[in-house]
Deep mutational scan, measured.
Amino acid sequence: SSEEQMCGTHRETKKIFCEVDRSLLCLLCSSSQEHRYHRHRPIEWAA
């Protein structure tokens, strides 16, 4: 659903897949302290 594609923290669309956590992130989350050094892919890659 579209609600699942929205970041609850930043209200941004989740467009990035974190390979380490195997989760979807928004651009702001992907550059956060928690995920900054993880490997990321565009969401299309994970589909």
Rank of each mutant, 00 (worst) to 15 (best):
S32Y: 09
H38V: 01
C18Q: 02
C29P: 02
A46P: 15
R41E: 09
A47F: 02
H38K: 03
K14P: 05
R11Y: 00
R41T: 07
T9M: 08
H38C: 01
I16P: 04
L27T: 14
K14Q: 07
C26I: 00
L27I: 11
S31F: 07
R11L: 06
I43P: 04
A46Q: 11
K15Y: 10
C29H: 06
V20P: 07
C7T: 01
R36S: 09
E44N: 11
S30T: 09
A47T: 14
E12G: 12
E12R: 13
M6V: 09
Q33E: 14
R41L: 07
E4T: 13
K15R: 06
Y37M: 13
K15W: 02
R39F: 07
L25V: 14
C18V: 00
M6F: 01
C18S: 07
G8L: 12
R11G: 11
F17C: 01
H35N: 02
T13F: 09
F17P: 07
H40Q: 10
L25C: 09
H40C: 03
L24K: 06
L24P: 09
T13A: 14
Q5G: 08
R41C: 03
A46N: 10
E3K: 07
E34Q: 06
A46V: 09
K14L: 08
Q33C: 01
T9V: 13
A47G: 11
H38F: 08
H35K: 00
E4H: 07
S32V: 07
L27V: 14
I43K: 15
K14W: 05
S32W: 05
M6K: 04
S2G: 10
C18G: 01
E44R: 04
E4Q: 02
R41K: 06
E3Q: 12
S23M: 11
R11W: 06
A47V: 14
Q33G: 10
R39A: 11
R39G: 08
T9P: 04
E34R: 04
G8Y: 11
R36T: 13
C26M: 00
C7Q: 01
E34H: 12
R36W: 03
V20N: 12
I16V: 10
G8N: 10
T13Q: 14
L25S: 06
W45A: 15
S1P: 06
D21K: 13
R39K: 11
A46C: 11
C18N: 08
P42T: 11
I43V: 13
I16F: 07
V20Q: 13
S30G: 07
T13V: 12
L28S: 14
H10L: 08
E3C: 13
R11P: 05
E4R: 08
H40Y: 01
S23F: 00
Y37F: 11
R11C: 12
K14N: 06
L24H: 07
F17H: 03
H35R: 01
R39S: 14
L24E: 11
S1N: 15
M6I: 01
E44A: 06
H40V: 05
C29M: 00
S30M: 09
L24A: 12
V20F: 08
E3W: 10
A47S: 04
Y37Q: 14
S2Y: 03
R36F: 03
H40L: 04
L25T: 03
C29T: 01
A46G: 13
E3R: 09
C18D: 02
L24V: 10
K14R: 13
Q33K: 11
E44I: 06
H10F: 00
S23T: 15
R41N: 02
A46D: 14
E4V: 11
S31P: 04
R39P: 08
Q33M: 08
H40S: 07
T9W: 07
E44H: 02
H10G: 02
L28M: 13
R36M: 07
K14F: 01
C26A: 01
S31T: 07
D21V: 04
T13R: 10
D21A: 08
P42V: 06
S23K: 12
R41F: 08
R11N: 11
K15E: 13
D21G: 06
E12P: 02
S32C: 06
E44P: 05
L27R: 14
L25W: 00
P42C: 12
K14D: 07
F17Y: 09
S31V: 10
S31M: 06
I16L: 06
R22L: 07
C18K: 06
H10I: 00
D21L: 04
C29E: 03
Q33T: 10
S31L: 05
E34A: 12
H40P: 01
L25R: 05
T9G: 04
R36D: 13
H40N: 00
F17W: 14
C29W: 01
C18I: 01
A47M: 12
L25A: 03
C26Q: 01
E34N: 06
H40I: 00
L25F: 04
Y37I: 06
E34G: 05
V20L: 06
S30Y: 06
L28W: 06
S30L: 06
P42W: 02
T13W: 05
R39E: 15
H10M: 00
S31A: 12
F17L: 11
Q5R: 11
H38N: 01
E44G: 09
M6L: 10
T9Y: 09
T9I: 11
K15V: 06
P42N: 11
L24Y: 11
T9Q: 13
K14T: 03
H10R: 02
C7D: 03
Q33L: 12
Q5V: 12
C26L: 01
C7F: 00
C29R: 00
E19W: 03
S1L: 10
V20T: 11
V20H: 12
H10W: 00
R22C: 02
S31Y: 08
T9H: 10
S30D: 08
M6R: 07
T13G: 09
E34P: 01
S30Q: 02
K15N: 15
I43R: 06
E4Y: 07
E44S: 11
R36P: 04
S32E: 06
F17T: 05
R11K: 13
Y37A: 15
R11F: 03
E4C: 03
S23P: 02
A46E: 11
C18F: 01
E19I: 04
R36N: 12
S1F: 15
R41D: 15
H38S: 02
H35A: 03
K14V: 07
S1E: 13
L28R: 11
C7Y: 01
L25E: 03
L24N: 09
S30W: 03
H40M: 03
Q5S: 14
L25N: 04
I43S: 12
W45C: 14
H10N: 01
H38D: 04
Q5K: 14
C29I: 00
Y37K: 13
W45S: 15
H38Y: 02
P42S: 10
Y37D: 14
I43T: 04
Q5W: 05
Q5M: 13
E19A: 05
W45T: 15
W45R: 14
E19N: 05
A47P: 13
K15D: 04
S32Q: 10
R11M: 05
C7P: 03
K15L: 07
E34V: 05
W45I: 14
T9N: 06
S2M: 05
D21T: 13
E4F: 03
M6E: 10
L27G: 14
C26T: 00
H10C: 04
C26K: 00
E19S: 05
S23I: 12
S30F: 01
A46S: 13
R11Q: 08
G8H: 05
L27Y: 13
S30E: 10
R41H: 05
R39C: 06
H10E: 02
E12W: 05
L24R: 09
I16N: 02
L24I: 03
K15S: 10
R41G: 07
S1A: 05
M6C: 04
P42Q: 11
C29N: 01
W45L: 14
C7N: 02
S31E: 10
S23G: 07
H35W: 01
R22H: 08
C29L: 00
S2P: 12
H10T: 01
Y37S: 14
A47H: 12
S2R: 08
T13P: 15
E19L: 03
C18M: 02
S30P: 03
A46Y: 09
G8Q: 11
E4S: 08
E34W: 00
V20R: 12
C7K: 00
C18A: 00
T13E: 12
D21P: 00
R39Y: 07
F17S: 02
W45K: 15
D21H: 08
E4G: 02
G8A: 13
M6D: 01
S1T: 05
C29Y: 00
K15T: 10
L27P: 14
E19Q: 06
T9F: 05
E34F: 02
E12C: 12
L24D: 07
E44Y: 03
S2W: 02
V20A: 14
W45Y: 15
L27F: 12
A46K: 06
R36H: 13
H38A: 04
C26H: 00
L25H: 11
C7A: 00
L28F: 06
R22K: 15
R11D: 09
G8R: 08
P42Y: 08
E44T: 09
C7M: 02
H38M: 02
L24M: 14
R22D: 11
I16S: 05
S23L: 10
P42I: 06
K14S: 02
A46M: 12
Y37H: 14
H35F: 02
W45V: 15
S1Y: 08
H35V: 00
S31R: 12
E44Q: 05
L27W: 12
I16E: 05
E34D: 13
S2V: 08
E12S: 11
V20C: 05
H40A: 01
E12N: 01
Q5C: 03
T9D: 06
Q33V: 13
Q5L: 12
C18R: 02
S1I: 07
Y37G: 14
E19V: 03
E19D: 07
C18L: 00
C7R: 04
M6P: 02
R39N: 15
S31C: 09
D21C: 14
S31Q: 10
L28P: 11
S2A: 09
E34Y: 06
E34I: 01
C7E: 00
C29F: 00
